[in-house]
Amino acid sequence: MTDSRLPTGVALITLILLAGVPLSLYYAGHIFWLDIFTRAVVLAIAAASLNLMLGFAGLASFGHAAYLGIGAYAVGVPAYYETYGGGGMIASYSGWWHLGLALGASALFAAVTGAISLRTRGIHFIMITMAFGQMLFYLLVSIDEYGADDGMTVDLTSQFSHVDLSDPVMLFGICYGSLLLLLLLQYRLKHSHFGRILAAIKQNENRTRALGVNTFYYKLTAYVLAGVICAYAGVLMANFSTFISPGMIEWTRSGELMFMVILGGTAWVFGPVVGAMIFVLLEYFLAGLTVYWHLPFGLLLILTVLLFRGGLGGMLQRIGATRGEGQS
């Protein structure tokens, strides 16, 4: 009924490890681990934003990586023009301009594609969101100026007056802080007026409408919010990898985001963070073992989904519940 203590404890420990491990390794000279964890944190933000739709409202969008791309290109394209000329007023190194562009473009893209795709449901919704994502993918592939399917490097990170994103520790701190803020926001949102309407829509949309709720606007709001937050993750991603390419938004990327959310557990605000961490670590270790790492990786994911109903969050909830019963 209420969140049991076990998942909360796991969440707190994970958050501490998430910051403690990479920073101590970094200062001990193992610089590389900070990269792995920064990537995990950025992906956690993206996955958490997807959970706003998938977990909160039951909307299985299969094109969510498109917003990572929008955010990343909102950094890369203005920087490219500023370096090489052209682009008119778009050209800039300014971080605020990159952010504004990312949020504006993603909100617009989400509002338009959401207004269309949210008129469908079930498998149709999955297909149409995937189609919109692929449309953007092929658009970027076709633009030779931005390196077509090879993408291009970001020569200079987004510039802010007091923050230097090219400093890996600083960048990690910004990403980590953003994740904490997002988790707090999502926790509040889940238990708010809006969150309860979304939960009702997830369980039975027709019933919710029969109570007088215009469910479309609630779903659209969640959809746009999720898109904008994911675009923010895209801005961070471009600054982290200093490289952008259409590959960031291919449908397989959207699938990975979805797996992270399902792996961690959709009913758990913290689930996507656990999912993203496991994903990044598995990817790293399996890729070290074999070049065919996608196969065992896929099998593992399928197994988790089949064995742990409700993801890891659901499993923790059940363990916590049975232990609680044993004690009382």
Partner: peptide, 22 residues
């Protein structure tokens, strides 16, 4: 909460994102 969803709907929009509804 089941009934409260209906009360919420009856009171107008629920675009309130921060305060705990319960």
């Amino acid at each position: 909460a089941n009934v409260a969803v209906a009360v919420q709907a009856n009171r107008g929009h629920s675009f309130r994102f921060w305060r705990p509804v319960s």
